[in-house]
Design a protein around this nucleic acid. Sequence first.
DNA 1: TATTGTTATACTCTATAACTATA
DNA 2: TATAGTTATAGAGTATAACAATA
Lengths: 138, 138
Amino acid sequence: MTDPRLDIATQVDRFVRRLNAAVHARAEAVDAERVGPLGGMALLTLAEIEPAPIGRLTAEMGRDKSQMTRLVGLLEAKGMLARTPSPDDGRVSLLSLTARGQAQVAAFRNAVAAAVDEILAPLGAGERDALAATLRKL
Amino acid sequence: MTDPRLDIATQVDRFVRRLNAAVHARAEAVDAERVGPLGGMALLTLAEIEPAPIGRLTAEMGRDKSQMTRLVGLLEAKGMLARTPSPDDGRVSLLSLTARGQAQVAAFRNAVAAAVDEILAPLGAGERDALAATLRKL
DNA sequence: TATTGTTATACTCTATAACTATA
DNA sequence: TATAGTTATAGAGTATAACAATA
């Protein structure tokens, strides 16, 4: 590659591919409910911000709102999260994890952390911290 | 986020989302042939390694081979690349870009580079180089 | 017997627009 | 009139397995 910017783009793309593959490999044991990688990500994100309206979750994940409507419906049907009407705004429901959802989050956390460790194995501790710090700025 | 590894996973995920969105926004002008982001990535990759068999391209992109069969068929139908039978192995064809494909590559290169610039804007030059170097190790 | 590549199938994710109900 | 969320639909990307041809 001549242009370092293209290099970054392709490397990051492959990073995500490997991450998904590694999580997927572990997920056979973990994802008995088959919420999928996107569902896992949504639960992971919701764990950080709950209780939150669906719009907040959408923004946090950088996805599309119609996509989120369906995903949240799926996760609700599987008993991973619950909606409670917002007292402030009649259009809004607040999402929060159920006990099932929390268990799933814990399992996903382990799978993702292990997958990241695997991929970042070639890096030293200092480089990992630097990478995390750099990404946080974006 | 408590665990820095989860942090890295979500940040990288969002990076790719933003990258795709930014390229997509520019691609309306560029991607008249509608090869899609994956097709663009394939052409970009092929430009670096041509002439190469489909298996090499598959490995380089970290994708699935059956997926590549279809994608290459599409790109061939659009006149972006050509196959020539390998003299060494009767099972293999070597892929190479056509003039059309090369033009498309040039356009995509610009779109991707601009998108990366946009996303990496918060970083200093030193940090960008460090990021590129770190990713190359993975 | 192993490898390259193809076909088939089912599923997951993404993009867009039109729509409803509340604010 | 603006915003939160939903519905509908089409298309793009992914995962798996079974298969044919060649090595």
